[in-house]
Amino acid sequence: MERRVFWKVLSGSGLAALMAPIASRAGFAANTRATPRFLRPPGALAEDDFLDRCIRCGKCGESCPNETIKFFDFENGLSSLNTPYIVPREKPCVLCMECGEACPTGAIKKIPHEAEPIMSEVNMGKAVINKDICLSYQGKSCGVCYRACPLPDVSMTVGYMEQPTVTDACVGCGICERACIQMPQAIKIMPRANT
């Protein structure tokens, strides 16, 4: 927290212009600027702490059995260089929790592969439904997102015509976004940083 104050003092003195690429850490700049829509691996600490802890060893990606985890080049600023991210539309997270097991520093928490701890600890983002284009809400019973959800009836419920509703238990794995047959998707994960 003190360092954030330090950076604010720096920005006042104009030095920040020089250090801007470094200063673009989360909580200071990365959250507020238009960035690619990405998720951090499941169990990642809050963005600020995550960037503190991550040493860019790449073991999370190397332990990911689906190659879901990718690594940033410069797309998200210098502070995110070589840090892991997930694009749910390309490859969602299956919540196997192997990356937390592999992370040496604790930037990604070690969470057992069970429903309870996953629901309480993982917060990658939250699914948001656009009812204007969702097929079920347009009178064509679909329910694909519900079928795909790893936590059905817990983080997503369906009602009449399989119209989906996302509950607070959603961890943001992104499988529903991957599964959605509508183009553009009627359900998307809003990353936790942007909510």
Partner: peptide, 9 residues
């Protein structure tokens, strides 16, 4: 100061 392990790059 930056609070992130840039050194690994």
């Amino acid at each position: 100061t930056a609070g992130t392990v840039l050194i690994s790059n």
